[in-house]
Nucleic acid binder design. Sequence first.
RNA 1: GCCCCGUUAGCUCAGUCGGAUAGAGCGCUGGAUUCCUAAUCCAGAGGCCAUAGGUUCAAAUCCUGUACGGGGCACCA
Length: 581
Amino acid sequence: MKEKIKESLYSIIIDLYGSSEFIHDEFEISIQDNKEKEYGDLASNVALVLAKPLKRNPREIAEEIKIKFITDKEIVKVDVAGPGFINFFLSKESHGAILKDISIQKNNFGKIESNNQKVLIEYVSSNPTGPLHVGHGRGAVFGSVLSRLLKEAGFQVDEEYYVNDFGRQMNILSASLWIRYAQLFDKNIKMLNNGYQGDYLIAIAQNLKKFRSDELYEDDEEIKSLLENENEDAEKHTDEVIESIKSKLSDEFSYVRDFALREILELIKEDLLEFGVEHNHWFSESALYKSELHDLSKVDQSIEELSSKGFVYEKEGAIWFKSSELGDDKDRVLKRGNGEFTYFASDVAYHLDKYDRGYDRIINIWGSDHHGYLPRVKAAMEASKKNVEKLEVVFIQFANLIRAGKKVTMSTRSGKFITLKELIEEVTSEAARFFYINRKADQHLDFDLDLAKEQSKDNPLYYIQYAHARICSVLRKSKAREEELNTSELGLLDSNKEIEIQKILKQYPPLIERAALASEPHLICYYLKDLASIFHSYYNTEKFIVEDQKLMNSRLFLLSGVKQVICNGLTILGINAPHEM
RNA sequence: GCCCCGUUAGCUCAGUCGGAUAGAGCGCUGGAUUCCUAAUCCAGAGGCCAUAGGUUCAAAUCCUGUACGGGGCACCA
């Protein structure tokens, strides 16, 4: 309908003012939906835009255009109002077209045809040193919903988890696991202070014992006393412990590490699956350091790449990247003085690898505390002559959990954080998803645990699901068959509420497109709340199961459309639309 | 010090490409149920869109300054 009006307006304007130089192919006519019904259904500001170049009064221009505009069965009236808006009034029947679209397209209503673009979304990527906690929840849901949304919008999406299975933290994890394992044989062994304290490692140690019995343990006074005697320098002490365990276990140390990694990834995958999050790619950081035969590893290659472009130098024994020349605050170390690569070096290689895989869009979901990290990654891509535009990073703000009106405090250091699993068990996976995605990503979020569990209209998810269940109930009671609902009498849907519902349904496809392009899935939540709200209101003013068959038919057809759109929206959020509650 | 993000009703927040009289929920006040799920609905009160300029026919929306709040600035990951 908007397109149709645009075309008409365009030809009228060419006709009237075509000789003017500023009317050309790029001239954009915008048509907006009207909020106030007295202004009609749609409006164009074209006369206001033309006023300046034509040096004429906008109302006069609007009047000229209005006279030329030919009304028909759908557009029944054209009017000029305010400073020079041209308002269009649609016939009552014309609103019903959307219901027919929905009934034909069903689950595909809102879906956009494939655009043949490939997009990579990397998210969660939590360190594989322990189970996911609530801090990871928001990013997990965001990535998951954005993936679904982009698929809906015609993209081909890969969802990737980057596993940081390289470097010092893996050694700390291995040492922590081994100590837990050793404690199964000797309770007097002290846990490493800087180690991973969580109970999950005790469970994993018990598994390790099942596989290897006591093969990896023998009484060792040296390690025991080392653990007893903490050094003032905690970091140094940690390294000493790692070294002594490493030399004790020699080749078996990597077995312990792989065991820990495998078990923890298993935990993470289980939790994610429970949360409706499923990555189809798992990318290992350590793979970036493997080299085949005489080839360089990916990390070496990427440093080589930066070097060949003249962005690498050596200073004080370390290898640096000249990121300051490409928009970063300062230069960054790629390889430390002690010969170890930095995390950044991995990330350069990782991102170059993402580019090599031929994606049209590369999206990273990062915690907002990483925002200072982006300039150096972009600098590295720019230095490697990659198209930096392709790389998008969405920063996710922290979420506070609120219980009984108070912030739930957590501290990572003591290991006393609430795990994602516990959150899901408390409020259900669906409520957790909804509450996490209900807010713009870059805004702080207060997650009200009590509200998420509440079964009333105050809980927005409940409210939306209830609308769906209510419609299902009406359709059941009416004994109507949805597929047989007649589409010929839609002019009967002429009350204010009925027309408003149809207008809101019409907004769904453009909403999906906008949410996808702007990476703003929270818009779906707000839309669904609006749709549920107008439905509940309608429900209280009108009866649907009535004597008049044609009227009943039309109203049920409308409800069926609402039901379908709620279902489609909830599906993108990864939430079930219940048939009864 | 530098860099991000924010500031909209008492509270929590939406606000599309800049459009006509700025929206919702909670809370507050008052109402609706012989009837398809009251797990709901209706009505009322409540606003200097932080602040000062600028751009524009038109600014909560775009630009600049200021104030306040949150976060970030490693040879950590």
